[in-house]
């Protein structure tokens, strides 16, 4: 870092977003009744917990210069299969093991296509997302919505459990963030992931096992997708496969991009996920209190996402030296 850069701290995207979130927070506090109540604040965190877990998984892939568009499909599919086999008489543990195994398998499949077949992550996961959902919905599942079985007492109990007054989904988000932070910060694979995302060719030349690392990052995002799905299923008592067609995926990308994890890879971390989730949480909550219809909320969120991508493009311009031909 040169001296001039140190003297004049750059306005990082993370800082800007945090500032925006705080301003929004302050604005809603002043203008909206009941915004600052403890119950509402918990609501804000709860509303973005599942999103946050998904965003943590997405962040891992994005840091390694990938993207996983199949996360929602994997989330829906693994949890739906888990609940369906539990209806069929499987024990909770066995069903959970099956779901995790499927998630790992699907993640490995994505990773294989990206790392070994050489398909760009965008297209590989776009295709696999459509295929995975289409296959499971048409061949395995019998209905759109599957409830938590009544005899799954452990899961039902988890849904109403509180630790320090915090519900399960908030705890799950916190746990994932801490775990992800530790993994990215303290493990060798975590450090390698940053190097790979920053300069893939250099990482490869250095002898870092880039291909297995890509596979592992997609497996991690798939497992986190399952975890997010399970958390959501526990608190909602059911899973609705139709959320595949919702804008949830874009919200996940929104959290990641707006938090400041550059899509060109190698930048950011779990802190950015928290910041991004915080802004989105405040925004969603405020819009809900303002009673904006859902379709207007979608428009606002997508415009914000576009603004975030434009900002990302300006702050992290694509490097013509390390980006490859056909990297779209």
């Amino acid at each position: 870092m040169t001296t001039t850069q140190r003297l004049r701290p750059r306005a990082t995207q993370e800082g800007i977003v945090l500032l925006m979130a705080l301003l929004l927070f302050a604005g809603f506090t002043v203008t909206l009744d009941g915004f600052l109540s403890a119950a509402n604040l918990l609501n804000i965190v709860r509303s973005v917990s599942v999103l946050g877990v998904l965003a943590a998984g997405m962040a891992i892939v994005v840091i390694g210069r990938g993207i996983d568009l199949s996360m929602i499909s994997i989330m829906v599919v693994t949890v739906a299969i888990q609940l369906q086999v539990m209806h069929g008489g499987w024990s909770t543990g066995a069903a959970m093991a099956l779901a995790v195994a499927i998630a790992l398998g699907l993640g490995a499949m994505n990773g294989y296509m990206v790392a070994y077949a050489g398909v760009s992550a965008l297209f590989a996961t776009l295709a696999s997302g459509a295929f995975i959902f289409g296959f499971v919905r048409s061949q395995i599942l019998r209905q759109d919505s599957i409830t938590l079985p009544d005899d799954a007492t452990t899961l039902l109990a988890l849904g109403s459990a509180r630790v320090l007054g915090l519900p399960l989904d908030v705890l799950a988000f916190a746990f994932v963030v801490v775990l992800g932070w530790a993994a990215l910060r303290w493990t060798r694979q975590g450090r390698f992931l940053y190097l790979m995302g920053d300069n893939f060719q250099a990482a490869r030349t250095t002898g870092i096992p880039v291909r297995p690392l890509i596979v592992v990052s997609f497996m991690a995002s798939a497992v986190l997708a399952w975890a997010a799905g399970l958390t959501s299923a526990i608190s909602l008592q059911s899973v609705n496969t139709r959320i595949v067609n919702s804008t949830l995926l874009y919200d996940v990308i929104l959290v990641v991009v707006i938090g400041g994890i550059g899509l060109s890879g190698g930048k950011g971390g779990m802190r950015n996920v928290v910041v991004g989730a915080f802004l989105i949480g405040v925004l969603l909550n405020g819009m809900t209190i303002l009673n904006l219809p859902n379709i207007h909320q979608n428009l606002i969120r997508s415009v914000i996402l576009l603004a975030a991508i434009i900002l990302d493009g300006q702050l992290n311009p694509r490097d013509e030296q390390t980006s490859q031909q056909g990297d779209i």
Partner: peptide, 26 residues
Amino acid sequence: AGTGTSQMVVGLMLAAAIILDVRWLK
């Protein structure tokens, strides 16, 4: 064919075509 089938087939075709194209180019 039921819900999701055409999505499955389209996804499969897309993945297969891209992999084939990438391998062929390479």
